[in-house]
Simulated assay, not measured.
Amino acid sequence: MQRTITRVLLVVFGLAEVPVGLWPLISPSGFYQQFPGFRAGWVAMDGPFNEHLLRDFGGLNLGLAALLIGAAVIGTTTVARLAAVSALLFGVPHFVYHLGHVGHFPRIDQVLIVATTGLGVLLPLALLLVPARRVSPPATP
């Protein structure tokens, strides 16, 4: 069984993925021009608009959100770890890409991009490191 901290991390991480998934599906051009919302242009500064790619990215993030939240609901450590590995398989290449492609952004954006994409690696790593809850054997009379 999962520990409470595992469930909380899964739900928080999953909920954070929902807007990043919905936004490009609802408004690909809006996501392209305005992401992340508080500092516009992170996607637009990285290449030409590609609606297909943005819709795929949105669907991927919604799928990841469903997996993370579903893992919290199911409640087993094995499923939580599977969700964490899945998040890492997306998060590590995403983070590594951004490490090498932030030079054209203002310094504050560089820091924010590296920090936010780094969370996509740190959160699943934390999920993998939380030990499973020990199940006590039933007491015998």
Rank of each mutant, 00 (worst) to 15 (best):
V121S: 02
F90P: 00
R107T: 15
H94E: 08
H98S: 09
G100P: 07
L119R: 02
H94P: 04
G120Q: 04
R107L: 11
F105H: 11
L88H: 06
P93T: 11
T116P: 01
R107D: 12
G120E: 01
F90T: 06
F105G: 01
F105K: 06
I108G: 04
A115H: 04
T117E: 10
L112R: 01
H94Y: 09
V121L: 06
G120P: 01
P93E: 10
V111G: 08
V96H: 07
H98M: 11
V92T: 12
L88M: 14
L88G: 04
H98N: 15
V111Y: 11
P106Y: 02
G120I: 01
V111M: 13
I113F: 00
H94I: 10
L89R: 08
I113Y: 00
I108A: 13
Q110C: 15
G120C: 07
L89G: 15
G91K: 00
V96M: 13
I108K: 06
G120F: 02
G118W: 02
V92G: 03
A87L: 08
G91P: 00
Y97H: 14
A87V: 08
A115P: 00
P106C: 03
G91F: 00
F95A: 03
G118M: 04
P106G: 04
L88I: 10
T117N: 13
P106F: 03
A115G: 10
H101K: 15
I113V: 09
S86C: 14
V96P: 07
V102M: 02
H104F: 05
P106Q: 02
G100C: 13
F90L: 14
G120R: 01
P93S: 11
I113K: 00
F105Y: 13
F105M: 08
T117R: 05
L119A: 09
H98G: 07
V96A: 15
L112G: 06
H98L: 11
P93I: 11
F105S: 03
V114R: 06
G103E: 14
L119F: 03
T116G: 05
V96Y: 07
H94Q: 04
L119Q: 04
V102K: 00
V96T: 13
Q110Y: 14
H94G: 05
A87M: 07
I108P: 04
A115L: 13
S86V: 15
G120K: 01
G100L: 08
L119C: 06
P93N: 09
D109L: 11
H94N: 09
L99D: 05
I113C: 00
H104R: 11
S86Y: 05
H104A: 14
T116W: 04
P93F: 09
P93D: 11
I113L: 04
F90H: 08
I113Q: 00
V114H: 04
V102R: 00
Y97A: 09
V96R: 11
H104Y: 05
Y97V: 10
V111F: 14
F90E: 07
V96I: 15
L89I: 13
Q110D: 14
F90V: 13
H98P: 05
Y97I: 09
T116Q: 05
Q110T: 14
P93G: 09
A115T: 13
A115E: 09
L89Y: 08
R107Q: 12
V111T: 14
G100F: 15
L99F: 06
P106H: 03
V111E: 08
L119G: 09
T116V: 06
S86H: 06
R107E: 12
G100K: 12
G103D: 14
I113D: 00
V121W: 02
L119D: 03
G118E: 03
T117Q: 10
S86D: 10
G103K: 11
F105I: 03
